[in-house]
């Protein structure tokens, strides 16, 4: 049975595209057949993060408008033969597609893929409505900052109003050192404010920048964020993986309480 998951956030720049690329790669690494769809029409980016920008011939709008078949537009990943990208159109805008067309598009992919991941554009306008239309489940990405959390709260409200089946939270760019000295909200604080179940936390990690530079997602690699993304993928597949910020060797909560005891 396949599942359609939208990765959204409201605010731009919190890591939706990076998260989409890494969850897609991680799930493919774990043997799943994955289709990544960039729904950000006019501002496509998932192709560069995946390192597949030179292989685009057709795009999402071409498929919707019937200019090509789905199979012609899907680009196979460099490393995983079971991972495909449907790139967005760069020279069109959000109004080129409507929610009904997106529902049809995701339905068409269900036969061939276990997971269909939709990278949602920032904002709450048509691009957002298109992206969530066909989704069974939503992953809301936020960072531990006031502006990102406020937008995440708004997005969660909109997803609930649309009867989104399951809504889960990913807290990105957590800096344990700042949380420790009280200058960043903890993952627990963010969960408490947003009241949505947590799927995972990603540490702020400079390897992400390196990985984006190279166009090679780092899920599963020996980096703190690479391990955190792989943990998220395993949780999506139903494994029970305790929350930890990888690279530190200990769970986030025990680290914080341990430090409080020491202080």
């Amino acid at each position: 049975m396949s599942e359609v998951i939208v990765i959204t956030s409201g605010k731009g720049g919190v890591g939706k595209t990076t998260t989409s690329a890494n969850i897609g790669t991680g799930l493919a690494m774990l043997g799943m057949r994955v289709a990544l769809i960039d729904t950000d029409i006019g501002l496509r980016n998932l192709d560069v993060v995946m390192g597949l920008e030179n292989r685009i011939v057709y795009n999402l709008v071409d498929v919707v408008e019937g200019n090509c078949r789905m199979k012609q537009a899907l680009i196979r990943d460099k490393r995983y033969p079971n991972l495909y990208l449907l790139p967005s159109a760069q020279t069109r805008d959000k109004s080129a597609v409507n929610p009904e067309q997106m529902i049809k598009l995701t339905e068409d992919l269900k036969d061939d893929f276990d997971y269909i991941l939709l990278d949602c554009p920032a904002g709450i306008e048509q691009g957002f409505r298109n992206a969530i239309a066909g989704a069974d489940r939503a992953l809301v990405v936020t960072t531990p900052e006031v502006s990102a959390i406020r937008d995440a709260d708004r997005i969660i409200g909109l997803l609930e109003a649309k009867d989104m089946g399951q809504i889960q939270l990913i807290v990105n760019r957590v800096r344990t050192d700042m949380v420790r000295r009280g200058d960043m909200m903890s993952v627990d604080d963010v969960m408490d404010i947003l009241a949505v179940p947590l799927l995972g936390a990603i540490p702020d990690d400079e390897s992400i920048v390196v990985s984006t530079n190279q166009g090679e997602p780092l899920a599963g690699t020996d980096t703190p964020s690479g391990q955190a993304y792989l943990d998220i993928c395993k949780r999506l597949l139903g494994e029970e993986i305790p929350l930890s910020l990888p690279g530190t060797g200990r769970g986030l909560l025990s680290r914080i309480t341990g430090l409080l005891k020491r202080a």
Partner: peptide, 26 residues
């Protein structure tokens, strides 16, 4: 400097501001 001005840890300030802000938004 941030702590000198506010006398509180900024994470706590953020948490309190957000709680008010979200209720006000809703």
């Amino acid at each position: 400097p941030v702590r000198r001005v506010f006398g509180r840890r900024s994470g706590e300030i953020a948490r309190k501001r957000l709680k008010l802000l979200l209720v006000a938004d809703k």
